[in-house]
Design a protein around this nucleic acid. Sequence first.
DNA 1: TTCCATTTTGCAACCGGTTGCAAAATGGAA
DNA 2: TTCCATTTTGCAACCGGTTGCAAAATGGAA
Lengths: 333, 333
Amino acid sequence: MTVTLKEVAELAGVSRSAVSRTFTDGASVSDKTRRKVEKAATKLGYTPNILARGLTTRRTKLIGLVSNNFHNPIFLEVFDQFTRKLQGVGLRPLLVNLSDETDPEASVRMLRQYSVDGVVVASSTLPPGFSKAFKDAGVPVVNSFGRYSTAPEFHVVGIDNVECGRMAALEFAKRGYKHVAFLGGPDTATSTQDRFKGFSGEISQNPDMEMTVSYAKAYSFEAGREEMQRLLNIRPLAEAYFCGDDVLSIGVLSAIEDAGLNVPGDIGIIGLNDMEMAGWQNINLTTIRQPVQQIINSSVELIVSMLEDPARYPEARLFPCEVIERGTLRPVS
Amino acid sequence: MTVTLKEVAELAGVSRSAVSRTFTDGASVSDKTRRKVEKAATKLGYTPNILARGLTTRRTKLIGLVSNNFHNPIFLEVFDQFTRKLQGVGLRPLLVNLSDETDPEASVRMLRQYSVDGVVVASSTLPPGFSKAFKDAGVPVVNSFGRYSTAPEFHVVGIDNVECGRMAALEFAKRGYKHVAFLGGPDTATSTQDRFKGFSGEISQNPDMEMTVSYAKAYSFEAGREEMQRLLNIRPLAEAYFCGDDVLSIGVLSAIEDAGLNVPGDIGIIGLNDMEMAGWQNINLTTIRQPVQQIINSSVELIVSMLEDPARYPEARLFPCEVIERGTLRPVS
DNA sequence: TTCCATTTTGCAACCGGTTGCAAAATGGAA
DNA sequence: TTCCATTTTGCAACCGGTTGCAAAATGGAA
């Protein structure tokens, strides 16, 4: 069925080594035998078995792409970018959906069984111990969208969530909002915690501003809507809400709309991510843009460099965010 | 670094075969040696290398998950379900993003290099020749969300798009719409063609109904919005539109809203898919539900059965759709 | 033509597993 | 205890590749 090295060697009248060598870069083969081999190979439709090769080279070109965010639309963009970039450098993503199992050990074991060359953990909600487990197992790992640390134990690529919180606060101050609110994602997520830290820190600098705080159960439409519905029953209402992320913001917007209130007239909203939907004209969400593409480019770059140097010193790479002004905050006065 | 069979055998004081046998189901090992092996294995943290095993067993448990729909939110649900179900039966998805390369041969070659056990082609827009290429290469393939055929050359699991078109038409008739429109996805997609066939066929049965037809450039928000903006400049307007899918419908809704018209008061809309967003309260789209979960369950079931019997006779599995009534069509009078 | 440095080649062992087969071990029955 | 059918075990070959090493081939220079 599937044609092997041996058959090509026989047809070309050379040794198996010769065939192997014409298919490995930089190996020593004369033009003459290379031509013979190539001719035989194309005739038989031969293509080397990467997994068999991997047995001796210890390179499978397989990268574990691990995530638990299969419900947030931004992750479709993330998967799109990751698969493209990885394919672009000849790597293949083995997708792992962590929504079911929470045991990091099981994933580590599984991915080692497949001798992946490296792992990308793409999540802002997984505990840091998760990426650590790969590192401890000797598997190159980069944690994308993870928490920044000044002494990272493994590679982290993402944004400075503390700074993002600060940006939201400054944006509110600039527009003269006095009573503002932090409406975070789940308070167990490090991203939520960091954003809160930056936000509250900045607000507390401002003696004439006050802040209320609450958390939605997830980074999701339903959770945002639910939490906002609850908040709408409590007076006084805040003038502006910094929401956990865009999809949560959209849930919040829908609750506000149902309550007959107007955005940005009655209430201001700022999200985070700038996913595609945020720009849809019927949503038109003012938000803080997370540079997904740069984060992913950089993550792939890092994982590639770790293939060459697995002991590469862990690094935290942070990308700046920017406010994308659309229609859910009142103008700067 | 990574511990192998041999080391376990040495520690346990048995042959390599014995170790291998304790890790393969149904192999003949006495309880005594099994215990010895297991003890040694856990002590060393041994776990068999699936890829090395695959060399002789010809089973890698790798499944190519091939798609080109990385921009339609419904596919996040699709990827979520597929990865879960595959993991559930011990298979691992190797994700292939076809957005860049269009050459089926390249993908076939690549996936054969990784000796995948099978391939799921998840797309309603890829040409049928694509799945065929895998079949011809001897790789078990199922085409999910593909076009139904009475004489399928490979396994197809999906919906009857002709019937869906008919359902939309009947729904319009039931609600007394007279001038209706088909606003399809790209007219090169077989799904679009089939839906048109069913829709127009049913409308033509109804002498007092008339129909206009147009196509958006893609199954996307922007394409739907753009096409609707164009249509809004042409009089007379249709009373109700059957849109290519949900995300396209949302674009259409946003164009209508911008034009100051009301849904369902001025214009009725019905979509297709029933993706999560369709149920969001600020969208509340009446749509035809495609049973994604059943389609995926069935696809995984089929691929599993093909692993046992690769020559399994090709089958087309169709799942019924149903209208989900929300707020974008006027009530039945 | 001879010599020698350099390039190319094939052999054989290896990567980490599985498996058919023959030999060894086991465990009742007589 | 002996015998024999059944179960368990290890050897050795294999899956489809790569690679170090020594031998063979090549190709100038003298």
